[in-house]
């Protein structure tokens, strides 16, 4: 097993890892704020909005992500009339699937964070003359974010690993290139290399969240 061989398999796998990282970044940057909007919508006083948000969260959390990805990639184009306009680029479709799915999970995490905030925080804000927007942005969201941080970290690590589901919709990413090399060269080494790359990515992510938790300890 030569060093040159390892390098030759690593090169496409690292290119694949770039797709993985790109998908991760797009998904996390959009699904976190989208998830928070879902949290607010699910707590809305307008019943219709609250029901729609809760129904959405129920469906997205209650069905497999893989099913959702297959539906967006292969199911949407089969819809009558509108189908032909819904043929998306595979990578775009995958991003969409991850965003829609993860937003539902983040919405639940943030809901838990909001529930943990004592009503005294709202009352203190009110008697100090702060309006609802100021209370939300300056008092509630920072505390909610802090409470939700460990769960967000956990979910983010899961997201890194879930990117391997791209394999099923034939977007070439890290796992795809590992599997190709395994089949072609009849060696399991690429699987180990893939595992190491995933571990490195989740390690960096975990360290980043540990840093955030320390930074926002409020002690």
């Amino acid at each position: 097993m030569s060093f040159d061989y390892i390098l030759s398999v690593l090169k496409p796998m690292l290119e694949g890892a770039q797709v993985t990282i790109l998908l991760f970044l797009i998904a996390i940057v959009i699904s976190i704020p989208f998830g928070f909007l879902l949290t607010l919508a699910s707590r809305s006083n307008i019943r219709m909005i609250s029901w729609m948000a809760q129904g959405y969260i129920y469906i997205m959390r209650g069905t497999p992500l893989l099913l959702q990805l297959l539906f967006i990639c292969f199911g949407l184009p089969m819809l009558p009339v509108v189908g032909e306009y819904l043929v998306l680029d595979r990578f775009v479709a995958a991003c969409l699937g991850f965003i829609l799915n993860y937003a539902a999970y983040f919405a639940e995490i943030f809901r838990g964070g909001l529930l943990s905030i004592d009503k005294g925080q709202y009352e203190a804000s009110q008697v100090l003359g702060m309006n609802r927007w100021q209370t939300l942005t300056r008092i509630i969201i920072p505390q909610m974010f802090r409470v939700a941080l460990p769960a967000v970290a956990n979910e983010s690590v899961t997201l890194v690993k879930d990117t391997a589901l791209l394999y099923a919709v034939a977007v070439p990413e890290l796992l795809h290139f590992a599997q190709t090399a395994v089949n072609r060269d009849f060696t399991i080494l690429p699987f180990f290399l893939a595992a190491i790359i995933y571990l490195l990515m989740t390690l960096i992510l975990s360290l980043f969240f540990k840093f955030l938790e320390r930074r926002f300890k409020f002690e």
Binding site: D118, G120, Q121, E123, A124, V127, G129, I139, R146, F218
Partner: peptide
């Protein structure tokens, strides 16, 4: 309402300081 209640301050049993 806001203007009238702003004439008063309130101290709570459980302090309700902003922990962050």
């Amino acid at each position: 309402l806001k203007q009238i209640t702003s004439k008063m301050g309130m101290v709570f049993q459980h302090f309700n300081l902003f922990p962050h």
